[in-house]
Each structure stands twice: as C-alpha cells, then as structure tokens.
Amino acid sequence: MYTRTTGIKMQSIGGPIGKWLLTIVNGREMDIETVKERAGPREFSAKDDMPEEYRKAATRMIQFHANSEIMGAYLERPFIRQAPSLERKLAFSAKTQDELGHGQLLYRAAESLGVKTRDEMLDELANGEGKFLNCFHYPMESWVETPMIAFFVDGAAMRRQATLKNTSWEPYAHAMDKVCFEEGFHVKHGEAILHELMTGSKKEQEMTQEAFEKWWPRIIQFFGPTDKQSTHHGFASEVGLKQMSNDELRRAFLNSYVPKAEKYGLEIPDTPRITKNDDGTYEVNEDDLDWDEFFQIAKNEYEPGVGQIDGRKKAQEAVAWVRESMDKHEQTIYGGGESPQAAD
C-alpha cells in the first residue's frame, strides 16, 4: 500500500537529510559530464547522487507538469456541473479526479529530487510563482470549448508525455506510465464530445467551429516557442530529461491533428498560416502567432490566468483551517513526529 501524504509534512526520501544520507553512501555528486554520458531512458533515480543543476532542471520540468494538471482541472471543473448528460457528468468528474491524481503523482516525482517539498510547490502555485501550460490561463465559458481542451490540448499533451516515458529521471518516467494510460481515455472522451457536437444541430456545429478558431492558435503554442527561442531546451535534452524538441513535437502534433480536425468537419483557421510540405507533413508559420501574449502568460501576468490562479488560491485558503486541524490531529496522535497517515 502506498502512503498517502498529507501535503502537510514532507514524506519523501528527498530533502536535505535524504540528500546528506545519499552523499554518505555514494561519496560524491555525479558530475555533469557523467550525467550527459549516461543520460538514457530511466537512467537516474533517488539512489543516484545527481548534481544540483540536474535536480533543479528536473524539478522545474516536473513541477510545471504537476501544476498544469492542477490548473487544467481547475479550468475544467465547472463543466462537471454543466455537462449535458448524466454519463458525461460522471466522465467529467472522473477526468477531473484523474488530473488531480496525476498532480499528486507528479509532485511526488518532483519531491524525489530533494529540491522542493510538495507544500512549497503548491504554495508557489497559489502565489503566482508556479508556472503551468499556456492553454490553462484562458477562461472557458461554454460546453463547446470542452473538446478544445479534452481532445486537442490533451492530445497535444499525450504527444509530449509519450516521449517522457523515456526521460532520464526514473520516477518521472514511471509516473508517465499511469498518466499516459489515463490520458488515452481522456482524449477519447474529448473526441466523443467533439463528434457529438459536430454531428449535432447546425447551431452546435457553428458554436464549435467558433470555439475552435479561438483555441487553435493557443493549442499550437502549447508546444512553446521554436527551439531557437526556448531557454531551457539545451540542457534538458543533453541530460536526457527532454526527449523531443518543441519543433519536432509541434510538427508531429500537426501531422496527426490537422487531418483529425478536418475529419470532424472543423475548418482550420487562415491564421496562423499552415503549409503542407511535399511529403504531406505540416508546418506552421510561427510569425503569425502572438508571442507577446505567450510570454506574458509564461510570466503569469495574463489577466484571465491571474484570475484563475487567484481563484484557486482563494479556494485553497478557505480550507486552510482543515489542514491546520489535520495537523493538530497528527500531533496529538504521533506527538509531532513522522506520521504515516492522514485523512483523505
């Protein structure tokens, strides 16, 4: 049975003490050159004494991923209520629950690097310091927008996550096994909603097309700026954390999703311009995308996104009393020492 951590106390073997113990065992930190030489799928785990630069880069990447799961769920949660059928409501509730489960798993994988605790990462997310996917900074108002996330964004995420099964930090790769398995269902769920809308009334089809036009450029930006502009790409690739470049991922996504969108009767908007190469692959004209907005989002300064961050923060603060009460409960039972269990 796995231990359910409360999020109140640090439970992982990471942290300063864990790291100190590892140093005793291993003698010294692995140097960067060795890391680069050895970097391969699932090569490193908590038993390796990784250099700080690696641990920080891996933490940044996994924390971003974990935050995105939480903020994606936060964005989608109103549609549990607004789902137009009982079984869709069930599916939406289950999907949201899965995303929280992914967040839980990923924070644990991030904690295993010994840089930050889950509490610290959740605090950063609440304070607006934690970064997360561009698409989850935009507001969502209507049911017709749900497949834009559940089909396109989740589909895009699947692409990236599938490559991360081979990332060099083993706990991250391990988390991806479960995440990818469940995301497969989410994409199917999103695809079924899209199909339903695009075979529905004319009004539904028009509303869906309109939503698609709004979301399409954001979805393409999901993969981030071109490799030239990406600041963290080089090192993360060299140490095997990142498996494919932004450009490769974006191209692979377009190759598979442009035909899918068209299959469901969606028209690809004129901008950003997308050209078809002789070999049938697609290429996007990057200059047509709003990178100012993208980088504003990346800094957590985009207005609607700030609203989402603050809304979630407010909700979390409103239940702080419960976490405090659980803390007191644990202190009573375990005398303030390490505690294995908490309410769930």
Binding site: R4, I80, Q97, G103, Q104, R312, M326, D344
Partner: peptide, 28 residues
Amino acid sequence: TEWQVRAPTIESDISVANIAQDELGHAR
C-alpha cells in the same frame, strides 16, 4: 462535485470525487 479541485488536500479532493461519482452512479 463542487468540492472538486477545491478540497483541503489533493487526497481529500480525490476521495470526494470518488464519492460524488458513486452517488451519480446510484442515481443512474
């Protein structure tokens, strides 16, 4: 379900979701 993504901890969030889905399943 109103508690989803608003519960005190990730763990309690997951369990309230579970219970909500059970109840929806019973309604069904």
